[in-house]
């Protein structure tokens, strides 16, 4: 397939995955800031901002919402992601199924009906729920209509590289500081709870772990649990599988991204949480984020994006 088409599909999926993640971050911040006992309402919003990989001066709820959801000058805001996704979809109309196009274009058309100037709490939640539903629609549309050829593989590659990046950032920003401390607690760790809320995994957590919600267990769920579809190991299982199936005529060209992705997968697949995080969890998680970035760069190089 055309290298440009592959690149557009890859970025289309990345942008929509990111829009979904950002919507989840904001929904969780909105909920937790309302129930927070100490009254520091802005701290949850600042945490959401950090977990999206951004920073902002004098961050408060209004600014964070505007910046992460509606600011078109922020390339990873929700509206920018949806705009970019539509642009990429338009550029590869011929590679999309009708259902995929409907999902992306319909989202873009409906986006105009939300007025950022009139966002109160209710409307914001409705907007964020809508973003989650629309990105879910796209994922369903491509999973159930797209031919299992290279177009599908690049779409999936983009989705799971973005998801891996998001999960790693979420852990690094929210729980890495408390990971070094002991797990013996008698109350749920609030930051760890927030992480579970973002990834929608409160129930998944209970399936594998008993007792109070603890940072180390949450980190294990998000990194090493192959059953959890947002864990790093699950993402890299998908990534390595897609890379193996993409039809290469020149395997030398894509050798480096495959090597790095498989190395990462092997470490996650066979590692234990204590080894993976060792004594410096923050540093280890930062290291992981950098490696995911390098794999993305090598994918672009390997397939002439």
């Amino acid at each position: 397939m055309l290298a440009r088409t592959a690149s557009n599909l890859y970025w289309l999926a990345r942008d929509l995955e990111r829009a979904d993640y950002t919507a989840r971050l904001l929904l969780s911040a909105a909920h937790l800031s309302a129930v927070r006992a100490d009254g520091d309402r802005d701290s949850e919003w600042r945490a959401a901002l950090a977990a999206s990989g951004s920073s902002l001066e004098n961050a408060d709820s209004t600014r964070v919402v505007r910046y992460l959801a509606f600011d078109s000058s922020n390339a990873s805001s929700i509206v920018s992601c949806l705009e970019n996704a539509r642009r990429n979809a338009r550029a590869v109309r011929t590679a999309l199924t009708v259902d995929m196009w409907d999902a992306v274009n319909g989202t873009w058309l409906e986006l105009r009906s939300f007025d950022p100037a009139k966002m109160d709490e209710d409307r914001l939640s409705a907007f964020l729920d809508w973003v989650k539903a629309r990105t879910g629609l796209f994922h369903g549309a491509y999973a159930s209509t797209l031919l299992r050829t290279d177009g599908f593989r690049f779409t999936r590659l983009g989705q799971f590289l973005e998801r891996a990046d998001n999960s790693a950032r979420l852990l690094a920003e929210r729980v890495s500081a408390s990971l070094s401390t002991s797990d013996a607690q008698n109350i749920d760790d609030q930051a760890a709870l927030a992480v579970l809320r973002v990834v929608g995994a409160r129930r998944a957590y209970r399936v594998f772990y008993k007792g109070r919600v603890a940072p180390r267990a949450v980190a294990e769920l998000l990194m090493l649990r192959p059953e959890f579809p947002r864990s790093l190991v699950y993402c890299f299982e998908q990534i390595t599988q897609q890379l193996a199936e993409i039809r290469d005529q020149d395997p030398r060209q894509s050798a480096e991204c495959k090597r790095l992705a498989h190395l990462m997968y092997a470490q996650l697949r066979f590692g234990r949480i204590d080894d993976v995080l060792d004594a410096h969890p923050t540093a280890r998680l930062r290291d992981l984020i950098a490696r995911i970035g390098e794999i993305s760069a090598q994918v672009a190089r390997g397939y002439c994006f």
Binding site: L2, Y303, C304
Partner: peptide, 27 residues
């Protein structure tokens, strides 16, 4: 789309030794 052919832009095509090629992920 209707013809089932590739939609290309200038940068997707390359000419070598007077032969026109398109750049694909497979070469």
């Amino acid at each position: 789309d209707e013809m089932g052919i590739e939609l290309v832009e200038g940068a997707d095509l390359i000419v070598r030794d007077d032969i026109c090629y398109m750049r694909t992920t497979g070469g």
